[in-house]
Write a protein that binds this DNA or RNA. Sequence first.
DNA 1: GCCTTATGCTCAC
DNA 2: TGAGCCTAAGGCT
Length: 338
Amino acid sequence: MPEGNEVHRWAARHNAAFAGRRLNVLPGPNHRFSDAHLVDGKKLREVHAVGKHLGYEFGDDLYLHIHLGRFGDFTEGCGPLPEPKGALRAILQRAGSGKPARSVKGQPHNLTCAKDDGTQPFPPEDVDWCELRGPTDCSVYSKEKWQALLDRLGPDPLAHEPGDHDNPQRAFDAILKSKKPIAELLMDQQIISGIGNIYRAELLFRHRLNPFTPGEAMDLKTLKAIWKDSIPLLKAGMVDRRIVCTKRADRPSKQEPAPRGEEHYVYRRHGKPCFLCGEKILRRDLAGRTLYWCPNDQHTTAAENKTAYAHGTSLRANREAAKPGAAGRKRASALMED
DNA sequence: GCCTTATGCTCAC
DNA sequence: TGAGCCTAAGGCT
């Protein structure tokens, strides 16, 4: 369930564990990874990460493309493979490994993958295999197809190789030309790659921005500040498998690390008081995803606040209510009576 | 056990 | 713009 920070972390770990080695690449028991045989037994050259996409380069024009989507996740282990389960999609395993089995579901890590920072079950050098579950995509690309994907993606705040993906100017230009709200533009992977629903909500709050501001009404200085802020925020993103966006001084507890419930300013805090001003956090659907914001600190208008979901009703009921026409309202009222 | 929700994306209309 | 797909966890009955 990653945003760009976690995808880059997997790339770093899998490079350390698997790059330069021959791998067994196996489909799960549900036959949904029909390309496995194309890369099985081949040597992995390098793992690439751009935005939320992973590319396992096996040479010979073969890139295993993995996109975790909302639900995808890896499990890592050492030694013999565990019993396969139904939802499993793919396994990457060092050819010829055979240590005692240890496994752990995606664990807390920082992007740096420090070996001895206390957050690792074991260092990536000791990882013999990984299992993949629930990805949106797991298929083999040609180099041309991989490159076409890269060309389509906007700059990535976590890009570490000089080139297009580390140059934000393209993103700034696209935003300043658009009439769409900034909250929608920040989620658009063709504009900026790697930002997801948590970071967009939290970045907008950290810069006290009205999420409904049209891109063309933004100013370049603010866009540069958001970009600059996003880099350390994404890098430091994972603490105990949580994305933490609050500054220590802003947390009610003033504690470090952030206690549960104090990781985010607005994300999934609807109905709760803003840490800074006490106003209730609002939420609504925007382009198919839930947007969270503080009406006071983010200077939204009364009309904009009126579009927020009613408290105490389900997301589904609110989505139905937002649909035009009497039928939608009827469905919504039926749901709300539950 | 059912319902809801979730860090995402693609395709058809 | 809406439907569909992917999986797991938590809250509720």
